[in-house]
Write a protein that binds this DNA or RNA. Structure first.
Lengths: 336, 336
DNA sequence: TAGAAAACTGAAAACGTTTTCAGTTTTCTA
DNA sequence: TAGAAAACTGAAAACGTTTTCAGTTTTCTA
């Protein structure tokens, strides 16, 4: 079932079919109707390989993501997919390993699949001009971090939250509640961007409040999983049982920490307050409900696609910083 | 940067380049090495549009899914993506609306993108032979339900759990703990497959235990969201405050129900036991931890891809039923 | 060492579109 | 109503691969 069959069936040339398909104005209304009828009749669907070949570009947007485990990222992907569908594009997901370079992966994907755009999702991003791998299409860096190698900001688009500032905000809230012994639960240290930036926000919030830095209140897990966060919290508590508040860098970790504290006989928030960043749905329904800074996941995905499509259509690159919003739960209270 | 450039650069014809690319044996080792070096040197990546065009098929597997909201499905998608990558294919996700027909959508996608296979994910599936839309490639129906229209089972592949039997199992566990007044929290009734089948399992478990059916213990939410489940639980409790156990058809709904009960002053499991089906990660860390039947999400995604790839390679269709596994949490206890 | 077989290589056709260019038909203007 | 302009249409080239077929080179056998 090719354009040729449709042409034969409707008695015009394939050029005309193509013109109808592409909404070219140079087709008589009568002919257009006849062709559309034939297309419907025959259940004809254009072969996008052929189309992409001659157009030297497809209508596919690629997503490069390092690991789809993360419930936060999955939810961003979900909103990206929705936005891409709505905009009439298709989505190709490419998952890379921890060790892979997302720029090379993305560049290869673009060339192979003739993508018209790329979204790089949630990683540490290092793109240096003059690098051997070059992304030849518009792309949006949609990720936790606003750092972007040594590349000029104007030459790419991004959607991000300011990890430093948001962490600062969270810790400040604890301080304002009267806490001074504030522990922090960090993720893997090999992923510089997020843990490092949020850690810095934590440190500065403390020092701005005149609170002395205390190494033993820093707990680094070896990843972001709930299991690791649970174990880390227990390890932290074994070392120090006197902190009155805990800042977890993600909701999942926060939830796991609360469970660990609960099992240790520590009541939240009476004995220890907990705050996190993410705002995933389930944290509204934990007992107690988690106090957290909501990352606007829907907005992030949606805006990433909007910006990308704009750039594809010729608009300028754009850097969009989105802000979190505090969701007051039941896990923060003044210390006793 | 095309195959032609590589041919020129390495001093052989494009046919030879193609043969190297496709691991055709008829190439001298020396030439092969030279060509591979050239490919690397030039960062050449084959144009898959052209390749797909002549092969009349791509290496892409399509996923048709109705709504990516569901955390359970997202996690299946994640494992599907991993398996697809590992098998050397690419993944194209297509999301459809509530009203869309997944067979037509899939069939169109296949023809347009020249997919080599299709996975239909988590819906009510109705595929009748002789239907106008026909899926022309191997496909796997990877979904909650094992019902599949009037199509002969042998003519398609599937990975499923037996919703009826699993619900029966869950309710039976409550009965074995001594419960007789067991409420059920169902999802939207417009989605026949899952709610209906699990509801049937609930009914039969009760009647097999000689427990009389009680309409007022049935609560139907208008969807599967946590918010709706929370409200529904409150509505249920307003109607009947004497049930000693609750069966929620998903973990998310179960977690929301526990929160609602907690806010109503009902202690779980002391005053009311709760059991659910899904086994998402977070239910291990709620307080109390949810007792649930774990759906092997990783296995489901992984097996769906394995089966699909097998069928693509010429093997027979295969129906795989997977079983849930009980995860004993802290939400089931005998009634007082 | 001659001849046959095996190994290797290249030219050309084909996949199904879009688009350019030239040609034909229709509509409009004076 | 003749001529010009506008509207419409089709033939053919092109996109970048794979694959067939024929041809050339190398290796083997007697």
């Amino acid at each position: 079932m090719t354009i040729k069959d449709v042409a034969e069936y409707s008695g015009v040339s394939i050029s005309t079919i193509s013109r109808v398909l592409n909404n070219h104005p140079d087709v008589r209304e009568e002919v257009r109707a006849k062709v559309l009828a034939a297309i419907k009749e025959l259940h004809y669907v254009p072969n996008s390989s052929a189309r992409d070949l001659v157009k030297t570009q497809s209508d596919a947007i690629g997503i490069v993501v390092r690991g789809v485990e993360n419930p936060f990222l999955t939810s961003v992907i979900s909103s990206i997919e929705k936005a891409i569908s709505n905009a009439g594009y298709t989505m190709v997901i490419h998952q890379i390993g921890t060790e892979d370079d997302e720029v090379s992966a993305g560049a290869g994907l673009v060339r192979s699949k003739r993508l018209c755009g790329l979204i790089l999702l949630g990683g540490r991003f290092d793109y240096t001009p003059g690098q051997t791998a070059t992304i030849e299409v518009p792309f949006v860096c949609c990720t936790y971090t606003n750092s972007f190698g040594s590349l000029d900001k104007k030459s790419y688009s991004s959607v991000f939250i300011d990890d430093y500032a948001e962490a600062y905000k969270a810790v400040k809230l604890l301080i304002e509640n009267g806490h001074r012994k504030i522990a922090i639960l960090l993720g893997a240290t090999d992923d510089h961007s997020i843990s490092e930036l949020r850690y810095k926000g934590y440190c500065d919030a403390l020092s701005d409040a005149g609170i002395e830095f205390d190494e033993s209140l820093i707990e680094r897990t070896q990843g972001y999983s709930m299991k690791k966060a649970y174990d880390s919290t227990k390890r932290l508590y074994a070392r120090r049982d006197d902190f009155t508040a805990l800042f977890a860098i993600s909701d999942s970790m926060g939830i796991a920490a609360i469970k660990a504290l609960h099992n240790l006989g520590v009541r939240v928030p009476d004995d220890c307050s907990v705050i996190a960043i993410d705002g995933i749905e389930v944290s509204k329904y934990t007992i107690p409900a988690l106090t957290t800074l909501i990352q606007p996941r829907k907005l992030i995905g949606h805006e990433a696609v909007r910006i990308l499509v704009d750039v594809i259509k010729g608009k300028k690159n754009c850097q969009l910083r989105v802000e979190t919003e505090l969701r007051i739960g039941e896990t923060v209270a003044p210390p006793k």
